[in-house]
């Protein structure tokens, strides 16, 4: 397997009324060809911002990429000019967004909106592009596709629109699809269908998928690799099994405990994470999670945690992973003890 995308040390800042917000503070990530990477975190942790910055979709100003690189097939996406980026966007890397209702142009026919990227990237005629759009709609399992082609977004339900968004995204057979909370705005039953569709299409097209979500259920179902983000940084990174069964960061543990789990047949109590994420106007110099962390030690409030390897390819940004740190029963600390 080879890396299709590698992000190094990405920093994103926003200039606002009240000062500079450090939304993303040194993001490192890699996505392998054909696999699914889930990026998990609560609202405002910088997960959407990172990938919008990557795609060059961040409004600048107020947004600003202060440093970092993103290698995509030999190109540094962050250094490309807007005109060099454009041929990649929509054809090599595609993106779908959270709210399908507002993400489609309300006054343009669905068919025209799908055909658009085929026309500009593949140089198709409008007629061919519309034919292709019809196929894509059918591929995303939208009923009465020929009729749907000539309808406007307001005539669709949310789930249908997300299918349209997916059809639009895969139109040019991209190698990487970034799905930013693709099911958050949808009903639970619809969520399931959309996820199944995404999974099937990924297999069929051999795409890599970056799934941005705050829903651990979605992660468990879809992901190969998982990156847990907190306050603009990745705090834990590993395979889906690592994250779920060998959680090596207290934040991941907290997320898991806040997740309803009925499968085990016993009524486990939901434990919320106390407090709220830190103010990113002036992010804490030490561990950002320390203030909320039930396992916090003095060092966590004093020094920024280093990145430790809990097990092979399973990294955690936590002092408790220090080889000589005191252990906690719930926290996976590698094979050292």
């Amino acid at each position: 397997m080879s890396k299709i995308l590698e992000i190094n040390n990405l920093h994103v800042e926003f200039d606002t009324y009240g000062g500079t917000v450090h939304a993303v503070r040194g993001l490192d990530l890699a996505v392998q060809k054909g696999e699914t990477l889930a990026v998990v975190g609560e609202s405002g942790c910088g997960k959407s911002v990172s990938f919008q910055a990557l795609m060059g979709l961040l409004p600048m100003p107020p947004g600003r990429i202060s440093s970092g690189s993103a290698n995509f097939q030999g190109n540094d996406l962050l250094k490309l000019k807007e005109s060099e980026m454009r041929p990649l966007r929509g054809s090599q890397i595609a993106m779908i967004f959270q709210d399908p209702m507002s993400s489609l142009n309300p006054t343009k026919k669905i068919g025209d909106q799908i055909a658009e990227s085929l026309i500009i990237h593949k140089g198709m005629s409008k007629r061919d592009a519309l034919k292709e759009s019809l196929k894509l709609l059918e591929l995303t399992r939208i009923g009465e596709a020929p009729k749907r082609l000539n309808q406007y977004p307001f005539e669709f339900s949310g789930g249908m629109l997300q299918r349209v968004m997916i059809a639009m995204a895969i139109a040019c057979k991209p190698q990487l699809l970034i799905a930013d909370e693709p099911t958050t705005a949808l009903d639970v039953t619809i969520q399931d269908q959309i996820l199944a569709l995404l999974k099937d299409l990924q297999k069929e097209y051999e795409m890599s998928l970056i799934l941005i979500t705050h829903d651990l259920g979605v992660v468990a179902r879809m992901a190969d690799q998982v990156a847990v983000m907190y306050a603009g940084q990745i705090v834990e990174n590993g395979s889906v099994d690592d994250i779920f069964y060998r959680s090596a960061h207290p934040y991941t543990l907290g997320l898991k405990q806040a997740l309803p789990n009925s499968q085990e047949g016993k009524s486990a109590q939901l434990i919320p994470i106390d407090g709220s994420p830190p103010d990113l106007f002036s992010p804490p110099k030490a561990c950002a999670y320390a203030a909320r962390c039930p396992m916090a030690r003095k060092v966590c409030l004093e020094k920024a945690p280093l990145i430790f390897e809990a097990s092979s390819k399973h990294l955690s940004r936590c002092w408790l992973q220090h080889p000589q740190a005191p252990s906690h029963p719930e926290l996976f600390c590698g094979e050292r003890k």
Binding site: N105, E116, I120
Partner: peptide, 22 residues
């Protein structure tokens, strides 16, 4: 600043195409 213009940009449309067709 609407979401669908972000979608159009994500599709790879040029500013001119976005302006005139969206």
């Amino acid at each position: 600043h609407s979401d669908y213009i972000r979608t159009a940009r994500a599709k790879g449309l040029s500013p001119k195409q976005i302006f005139f067709s969206h």
